[in-house]
Nucleic acid binder design. Structure first.
Lengths: 205, 205
DNA sequence: GTCTATATAACGATAGAC
DNA sequence: GTCTATCGTTATATAGAC
């Protein structure tokens, strides 16, 4: 391709990705995907055979984009304090570009746990060993409080993902317009770094 | 009713509540609700006219059960440290009894933000004033760090809700069986109280 | 109120012309 | 590869007997 033009197959795939993330598998309609791609509905079946096969491919790709973000920074060699800041930064940057991703993954994951287990196994995804060792070492040296690495990891992910998942609720309860919500998210980045480092009683080495 | 027997209308409603929470609005089938209620499918329409009207009633009731839990303890008169422990306790106890509730509310909320806004407005739900004043007072007296009440509230809710929403992911990544996950949740209660109190640098008055 | 049977519409999927 | 037309199924919803 010489310029920005996607071919038909890619155009369908990107449209499907957007519609599935908006409506979920059950709520998505092949016609809506066709309209979004500005392509005839029968082309969807020509390239992807069925709704199920199209969804599976979208699901696999979105998962393959999501997990490296979650696990990527965790196993870097940077010191703990710096790493927490990088984690929050990386998650926010990714979710800002993909605001419906977290909701999509959580919904479809809970709808079909086996598919998630297969994906995790197939990709050889494991808890971040370097991060966990780093936590345990810092605990022994008394530089952080006595926290279970799994609990800390779930907390960091939860604290950053939740505003994107709960966006509608947060806006409604605090009566935020879009601009105020964006500001809330922006403020939250610095808030979270302090919050987490305090929470584990972090002292730089 | 003399004993535990529910009449037909209630039986349908409870079955609908379970199916909608399992499958979401789009994924739920009237036939599945009828089967779950062990009642003829046409009875659903006799009592509730349409799938949409049945869902609306279920949605309203589940919301009306959820929000008092989220806001209830926040506006009690108990001191901050005690209150955080009570919040975590209350959320966990409710979510343990209603494990699909958080996922259901978040999905259907994001699917129809206007319906949520109408509900919030109709019920006169506002940010918890007593809790927010308590935070601001503690800040002025130097008993906690300088945190925005909205950020703290979102953090507390996120930290407690997330394991229930992300249950499938947590079990898959850490390779927890059901027993281990229940233990993880149990451990998390005490973990979270310390984590949050540390995070805001809490000092009892 | 409860059942069977059926209308009606939507949706996924395919056939066949070009 | 792309289109129109249409098939077959499933879903919501209703009619009508009892």
């Amino acid at each position: 391709m010489t310029d920005e033009q996607l071919d038909t197959e890619e155009q369908i795939f990107e449209a499907a990705s957007r519609v599935f993330q908006r409506k979920g598998y059950a709520g998505a309609r092949m016609q809506e995907i066709a309209d979004e791609a500005d392509i005839n509905k029968s082309m969807l079946h020509y390239y992807y055979r069925s709704k199920d096969k199209l969804f599976t491919q979208v699901y696999q790709r979105e998962m393959a984009r999501f997990f490296p973000v979650i696990f990527g920074v965790m196993d870097s060699d940077d010191p703990l304090g710096q790493k927490i800041e990088q984690l929050v930064d990386a998650y926010y940057s990714f979710l800002n570009d993909n605001p419906k991703m977290a909701q999509f993954i959580i919904t479809e994951m809970n709808q079909n746990p086996q598919r998630l287990r297969d994906f995790i196994k197939g990709q050889g995804i494991h808890p971040p060993q370097i991060f966990f060792k780093q936590i345990n070492k810092a605990k022994q040296e008394g530089r952080i409080a006595d926290v279970a690495p799994e609990q800390l990891m779930v907390s960091i992910v939860g604290l950053t993902l939740f505003p994107f998942i709960g966006r509608t609720m947060i806006k409604a309860i605090f009566d935020f317009d879009e601009q105020q919500f964006i500001q809330f998210l922006q403020d939250r980045k610095t808030f979270l770094v302090d919050f987490i480092l305090n929470a584990i009683n972090y002292k730089p080495s």
